[in-house]
Design a protein around this nucleic acid. Sequence first.
DNA 1: CAGCATCCACGGAGATACTG
DNA 2: CAGTATCTCCGTGGATGCTG
Lengths: 105, 105
Amino acid sequence: MQSTDEWSCGVSKVMDIFSGKWKLNILWTIYNEDGIRFNQLKQEITGITNIMLTRSLETLISEDFVSKKRLGSKPPFRSEYYLTAKGKSLLPLMHSLNDWGKINL
Amino acid sequence: MQSTDEWSCGVSKVMDIFSGKWKLNILWTIYNEDGIRFNQLKQEITGITNIMLTRSLETLISEDFVSKKRLGSKPPFRSEYYLTAKGKSLLPLMHSLNDWGKINL
DNA sequence: CAGCATCCACGGAGATACTG
DNA sequence: CAGTATCTCCGTGGATGCTG
């Protein structure tokens, strides 16, 4: 048996992961192109600005869904973003969301 | 092949369904007790207030995830809340979220 | 019992401009 | 190229009190 409290508690936390306008989209974009760079991410995610991308990436990195590799020691800099194992574990969930949307929207 | 645009579009809409602090919790509570009444809903969902419950239910009804049956023509009133077919279609998704949470949190 | 009306606080989202 | 620094706006969430 599954109590309502157990449930709501866990799912609220899962929903927090996806909260924010861009995080899920960023995750998906990195998944499609592992090692993607900052500016390319910005191009692929329509409408996102520098700050929003920076903030969202910070959050995702701090939550250990995304990892960052900084290349070069002086400008112009380059950074690459990857999904962590934890980030990849979200993929089935994202596909579930996508599938539901296709059927029901 | 699945384009990023197709994907992000659909999933953003799915996420909108769950946006808001209480909606998912309400959906789940109604699922566990079909035909539940307003005050009982309030008791089971820890911390929710009258207005938030009212507003969330309004939204869920307008989106056709929940239906409402009003009983009695004069006070004291009674109302019962049910999941619609569309509401029930969310259940696999909610279970997916729950499962991921159990494994990864 | 099952709500509605009002008012308010806070934080996410964004515009704009600057920098190592 | 890959960010950072400010400032502003607005929507969500909530406290409180009233009502058919």
